[in-house]
Simulated assay, not measured.
Amino acid sequence: MEILILIKKQLKLLFSNRLIILAGIAVPVLLTYLFSNSIDASKKPCLYAADLSKSSYSAQFLQMLSSHKEITVVSTGKENILKKVDSQLIPMGLVIGKDFDNALLNNKPLPVEIIINFESTDSAVLKQVAATELSSLKKVAADSSYLSNKSGIPVNSLTSQVFNGMKSSSSSEINSSSSDTLAIKQEEMTQTLLGFLVMFIWFVIIQGFRTLIEERENNTYYRLLSTPTSYNRYLASKIAAAYLFGAFHILAVLLTGKYLLNLPVFEHLLPVILIFAVYIFLLTGISLPLSLLMKRHEDFTVTFAVIIIATGILGGSFFSLDTAPGYLVLLSKFTPEAWGEKLLKAVLFDNSSLTSQLVPLLALTAIALLFIGAAFAISSMSLRKKSYLVKS
């Protein structure tokens, strides 16, 4: 009963600071919105295309692609496309293979290769444009070949007449795929929101331990030592309050993301709850012993700000680690943000089962317990030292 009263008092102190609550909810959501909309909507995605066929039909295909207002077609070589895609400088590339004309006129599989490294909104648009125009080209070629056999008119002459009089109808067909593009956009925004959330939630959790510094500075700490209240219970109440404060913020941010940004953050509710439950526990465990070592507010603020920002950058909260150098990927394995993002990505976006992630979840829980055990050991040593100084 005593510990519940202590937890209630701690929560009352935390929730009294409305500015911290508002900032903890607004910052990750606002950053997600700004980052997701920072690219100018008027900027057209570029489709890099390599024409190895150098035929009339491949040239016509590229011309049909270039007629689209939604994209910009850039002619280049296959090697350049492979290099840019591997470096993630472009969303995708298109390679028209040799013997394109023969395959088209004889209804054979077309030697058209789409080179893509990862799915994105731009790549979805580009693939849809390419598929639409390729389908139109195949239909024109098939119809022209049939009419040529019936009338004796050369097939090239017929196709030229059709292409000259044909107007692109691809805009309406692209619009019909807007739901697919929107789904990819929502997935990207959800990943961005979760990336910021796993970082900024740490700022929220450390607020639960700020009173440890305040008590040392205003000498409340020493008065607490003279009360019959167990200091271990008092410390446990701070852990519980910080944990509940962090859980409240995560729920508030996810609800804001769902209803304000229209993101599908609750599609896998149970795995998300369990992963965040372990992740908050991990951050709480890491923060507690560090807080006990701080003696001044200035040290507390600066130290945690440096740690959180550094681990957030290394952990991939601001940029993807897919293209990062090997040493950064290695360093990221020692950051809680990277593990939080990895678990959420595996379950939410890679269709991994929760049971497949039990080993890292249990490992993070064990690490949290280890840090909390260290915190209580530090606290016990400090109390014994104070008791020894008082007696002497």
Rank of each mutant, 00 (worst) to 15 (best):
A310K: 06
P91E: 01
S160W: 00
L255D: 08
G315H: 08
N175Q: 07
S287E: 03
A131I: 04
N117A: 13
L22H: 04
D322I: 14
S144V: 01
S120A: 10
S151I: 10
T132Y: 12
N80Q: 10
I153L: 07
K333C: 00
I90R: 04
N156L: 01
A142I: 01
Y48F: 08
A23F: 14
G312F: 04
R216D: 08
I213S: 08
D299R: 13
A305K: 10
E173N: 06
T284M: 14
I309D: 04
K138W: 00
S42N: 15
H268E: 13
A247V: 15
N37W: 03
A183W: 09
F35V: 14
L354Q: 10
A305Q: 14
K342P: 01
E119H: 05
S38T: 12
F319H: 14
E188I: 12
K12P: 00
A252F: 13
S160K: 13
T32S: 12
V74L: 05
D299Q: 15
A23T: 12
Q63P: 00
L6R: 04
V73T: 06
V253N: 12
L383H: 11
L147N: 01
L52S: 12
Q207D: 14
Q357G: 05
L197M: 10
I313Y: 14
T335V: 03
E341K: 15
S172N: 01
S66P: 01
S144L: 00
V204M: 02
M1L: 08
P28N: 11
M166D: 04
I239E: 02
L225D: 07
E2R: 11
L293G: 02
V204D: 00
M64T: 02
S16N: 14
V253D: 12
K12H: 04
I174R: 11
F349G: 02
K8M: 00
S148G: 13
T220P: 00
L293F: 06
K238H: 07
V204T: 09
A130Y: 03
L105Y: 03
T72C: 11
P91W: 03
Q207R: 09
F209V: 04
A346S: 15
T181N: 05
T301E: 14
I307T: 06
F300E: 08
A241N: 09
G208C: 09
D350M: 12
S237K: 05
V306P: 03
D40R: 11
P28V: 08
I115W: 10
K295M: 06
V198M: 05
L362I: 09
K98V: 11
G257E: 05
S38V: 14
I25E: 08
M294C: 13
F15S: 03
L158I: 15
